[in-house]
Design a protein around this nucleic acid. Structure first.
Lengths: 226, 226
DNA sequence: CATATTTTGTATTGATCGACACAGAAATAG
DNA sequence: CTATTTCTGTGTCGATCAATACAAAATATG
């Protein structure tokens, strides 16, 4: 028995479906991406622990063996859901951040778009940020906690990098504590997720963003830090 | 059979142990308050869903029938735990708020004490605010959601009332949007809980609080809102 | 003392959890 | 066609969930 065959690389990397090559056996009867999107929405609105396999199979329109064959386990499905969330929805919040000409406009755009997106004003999506709210509820699941923690860390990294560029371009004085400023923006955005989940309206969060930008201006445009 | 006896009022109100009158039967072998404190810590750090009865009985040092006899159900125990949390720990965060002479000092004290308390720098307590973090994870438990939601609402009420007093005393111009300002402070404090749960240090949150106070100053001390 | 009342410890309850066995169905390969 | 491979649907696995039944133990009352 020849152990050859174009065995596609054993797919050790999670979250990546092997090239969509159509295999040999019975074809899958459901849309994997659509099912993943439904699972994402469910995890997003209910959290990891509170979402059961029964909830998932009902929302995804498949039976549990199909779920396990396609995604492996509940934890692996959650990891894929987080990645799907980031690819599909983070642009709503971070879009203007990357196109803005100044760091101030970038942060302003981030907070304003957060106010709109997190309150569900961008179509029919759950309230709050899936990654931010995963800070709670992923206790006791080390691997999942690491996934969402690194996602949050990347956000603060992006903020810090953008501000460092602004320093290099002369927009922000070199004396400003960029880490504190990035943490401040992260704090406001994280708080927005909780307020939004609690029912706060878009206009309220926009007013919060405006006050936050006053803090930004005072720190950046004002005198060098004490 | 005479239906008399000094039946203490039927204890319809939850969370209130009837006057510690020693009843007739076998005395309870554990300290109800101490057991409640342990349950509070567990709910606080793991959340409602992720905390099982087995976790609770182990931490409280009792068997499940004793738990149910003393507290009624998991939901009722959680409600008592939230009240215990508020009575025992909210003072660490809100203490200076009520003794401060000005609204600014009150808010500054609130945020600074939050930075210290939420990072566990006030003794051996879990990170983050139990009430804030309950915004997530109490989905699908209507009654519990209402308890923690009203607790959060009372926080923003307290903030607004203090600011209204400051307006009456001339500290804050009447033109300032108090609701937006209260929401801003609530947002920063809520965000701090998430950052703290994520591992942020006290000094980082204090730096965040300082930037937030710059926003306060710009809004309150600055020109009347645009 | 005897009796009533309450708690404790052991052992379960039915329900639900995540995950899977198995056989039939649907496709490709030879 | 037959053989092989893969997916679907039914049914169910052991573990754990929240919540109790039951009887022995411990207190108060009479």
């Amino acid at each position: 028995m020849q152990k050859s065959g174009p065995t596609p690389p054993p797919t050790d990397d999670r979250t990546a479906a092997p090239p969509p090559a159509r295999g040999r056996g019975r074809p899958r009867a459901f849309d994997r991406e659509a099912a993943l999107a439904q699972a994402t929405r469910l995890f997003w609105s209910k959290g990891y622990e509170a979402t059961s396999i029964a909830d998932l199979t009902e929302a995804m329109g498949i039976a549990s063996p199909s779920l396990y064959a396609a995604f492996g386990s509940k934890e692996a499905l959650y990891v894929e859901a987080v990645n799907h969330y980031r690819k599909s929805y983070e642009g709503l919040v971070w879009g203007r951040f990357f196109t803005a000409g100044t760091a101030r406009e970038a942060v302003m755009g981030l907070l304003m778009d957060s106010a709109a997106t997190l309150t569900g004003c961008r179509g029919d999506i759950p309230r709050g940020c899936m990654v931010t709210l995963s800070a709670v509820g992923s206790e006791g699941h080390a691997e999942l906690g690491e996934v969402v923690r690194s996602a949050r860390a990347s956000a603060v990294d992006i903020l810090t990098e953008r501000m460092a560029r602004a320093v290099a371009e002369g927009e922000i004085p070199a004396s400003v504590d960029l880490h504190a400023l990035a943490r401040f923006v992260q704090t406001v955005q994280a708080g927005m997720s909780i307020l939004a989940r609690d029912g706060a309206e878009r206009a309220e969060l926009e007013a919060v963003a405006e006050v936050a930008m006053l803090g930004w201006d005072a720190r950046v445009g004002g005198r060098p830090s004490p």
